[in-house]
């Protein structure tokens, strides 16, 4: 696990070759709403970084750009040394399989069970049914969801749905995991369960970017914190 001190200036390039590299990235929504302005960040392989800021600061937009769900208006984004704007559809699909994303609005299917929702991520990567079962059972155990395995996610509480989204993001043991407000709907105990999962994944080598405005999870944590204010890195 690569820990960077709190003294590390925001966006500074770590010692290793960056795993996620953003160079002067801007995103302007039509007609003229600037969501991000000249963002330059370098994140090393295996690093865990908190992306903080108020609502509307541009955290979600930044995560969407990193996982190629949107394109920047200006600037270059590289993941694993690959310029995202130059990726062919096939390469983009493979890259997405390697990036786990836990969305703020969960993006899970309410009429599918917890197991089915999580297994979707592993099925698109053509994992074997045995591997899928074992991995999902482990994740559900870690996130205290074992008893909800065969429950339709539409019948779960917001907190439980959030954990399902996190489990799906982590299912493929991705090399990069992006979590958007992952503890927004969780109580204190579950928050620390989720953070514990992130730490375990990070220990196993996963690079993690957590966007959150919940100070309790990043305050005093031995990880780099990047703060966004009105689309700018401060």
């Amino acid at each position: 696990m690569k820990k960077t001190t709190e003294n590390t200036p925001p966006g500074e390039i770590p010692v290793d070759k960056p795993f996620v590299d953003l160079v002067k990235v801007s995103k302007i929504f039509k007609p003229s709403i600037t969501a991000l302005q000249d963002i330059s960040i370098s994140i090393a392989r295996g690093e865990l970084v908190f992306l903080t800021g108020m609502s509307g600061a541009g955290k979600t937009t930044l995560l969407k750009l990193i996982c190629c769900l949107d394109r920047p208006t200006k600037g270059v984004i590289e993941v694993e040394g690959k310029d995202l704007s130059r990726l062919k559809p096939k390469q983009l699909q493979l890259l997405r399989q390697n990036i786990g994303v836990a969305y703020q609005n969960f993006r899970i299917l309410p009429d599918l069970t917890v197991f089915q929702n999580i297994s979707m991520a592993m099925e698109v990567a053509y994992r074997s049914p045995t591997v899928i079962r074992r991995r999902i059972d482990d994740l559900l155990n870690m996130l205290l969801l074992t008893d909800k395995r065969d429950t339709e996610t539409g019948k779960l509480s917001r907190g439980e749905q959030q954990r399902v989204a996190i489990a799906r993001a982590a299912a493929n043991s991705p090399s990069l995991l992006l979590a958007d407000e992952p503890t927004g709907n969780l109580d204190t105990e579950t928050t620390w369960q989720v953070m514990n999962l992130f730490k375990q994944l990070n220990d196993a080598g996963t690079t993690i970017i957590i966007a959150s405005h919940d100070e309790t999870i990043y305050k005093n944590a031995p990880f780099r914190t990047l703060k966004l204010v009105q689309g700018k890195l401060v």
């Binding site: 559809p89 699909q93 399989q97 990036i99 994303v101 993006r107 899970i108 299917l109 979707m120 698109v124």
Partner: peptide, 16 residues
């Protein structure tokens, strides 16, 4: 539609 969008975000290939 919703499921297909999610599959796309999860990296499902065109063939899938």
């Amino acid at each position: 539609r919703e499921e297909l969008q999610i599959l796309r975000m999860l990296g499902a290939t065109d063939a899938y």
